[in-house]
Each structure stands twice: as structure tokens, then as C-alpha cells.
């Protein structure tokens, strides 16, 4: 079980580091087109920053920042964004996930519409991977009993 760690050095360093880790995760998601990266990797980095909150502070503090309800909403929101991008292409008259047709609603040519369609689904994948990694971590590390994790 998780034991709360009262160490001011760890807490301060984590408080300083976590925004930069999250910024790097967002960079990896958003710049996955031109450099190594993408939704899966960036989502895992975002989840790692949240796990650092759990390790450095304690579980109630972490759940106050990113509650379980928000986690469940995010995990389905990512799949929703992905499927919704595919359905937009279908509604505009092309095949499912054929992003070139998105140039009808975006002010770009069809090739760049594919670029932004891919960006949209990478964001969806990143959100889902982040939320699922966090929920798997919290459930496995406490055995599913978040509230009793600090009792012992």
C-alpha cells in the first residue's frame, strides 16, 4: 500500500518538474508528425507525470487534482474524438477516416487536411492512453481500494 512520504525536497522538486513533464508530453503528441512521437508515447508521458504526483504526494491529493470521474470521462472522450473524426469524413461524403474531405470545413487544401485529421486522432489516442494508464496504475497499486489505501 502507499505510505505518505513527508519529504519537502521530493515534493518541491516534483512540483517544479511536473509542469515540464506535461509540457513535454503535449509536445510529443502535437509534434508527432515531424519527429519521433505520437499519441501513444505522449499519452504515456502524461500518465507518468500523474503517477509522479501519486508517488510524491499521496493518493487523495492526486485524486483531488484528477478525479476518477474525470478519468472515466477522458478515457471515453479519446475514443469518441477518434470515431467522431472518422464520422465527419463520412458525413462530408468520403470514406470512413478519409481525412482529405475535411478540406471542405477547414481552410486548407486536401493534403494539409489529412495532416490536421491525423493530428485530431492523435489527440484522441493520447487522451485515451493517458486516462487508461492512470486508471490501470491506480487500480493495480491499491488493489482497487483507493479509499483504504492510506489506512494501514
Amino acid at each position: 500500500m502507499i505510505t505518505p512520504l513527508e519529504n519537502i525536497i521530493i515534493k518541491t522538486i516534483c512540483r517544479l518538474l511536473i509542469p515540464f513533464i506535461q509540457l513535454f508530453g503535449l509536445y510529443v503528441i502535437a509534434h508527432g508528425h515531424g519527429s519521433p512521437g505520437g499519441g501513444f508515447q505522449g499519452g504515456c508521458i502524461l500518465a507518468a507525470s500523474f503517477m509522479l504526483v501519486v508517488v510524491a504526494f499521496d493518493l487523495p491529493e492526486a485524486k483531488r487534482r484528477f478525479s476518477e470521474k474525470m478519468n472515466n470521462i477522458f478515457s471515453s472522450l479519446g475514443v469518441f474524438i477518434y470515431a467522431w473524426t472518422g464520422w465527419m469524413c463520412l458525413l462530408l461524403g468520403a470514406n470512413f477516416l478519409d481525412y482529405g474531405i475535411l478540406s471542405k470545413i477547414l481552410p486548407v487544401n486536401p493534403v494539409m487536411a489529412r495532416y490536421y485529421g491525423m493530428f485530431s486522432i492523435e489527440v484522441g489516442v493520447g487522451i485515451t492512453v493517458m486516462a487508461i494508464m492512470v486508471s490501470l496504475f491506480l487500480d493495480l497499486v491499491t488493489g482497487g481500494k483507493h479509499e483504504e489505501a492510506l489506512d494501514e
Binding site: 508527432g32 519527429s35 519521433p36 495532416y115 486522432i121
Partner: peptide
């Protein structure tokens, strides 16, 4: 075709998006 230099991303998200 896609304007994306990273082939892994373009194959993952476009050619094999399904």
C-alpha cells in the same frame, strides 16, 4: 499524399487508421 514527414505517424493514422 499526406504532408507528414514521419512515416510511422502517416501509416499509423492515415493508411491504417481503421
Amino acid at each position: 499524399e499526406t504532408g507528414v514527414p514521419n512515416m510511422v505517424t502517416s501509416v499509423l493514422a492515415d493508411y491504417r487508421g481503421y
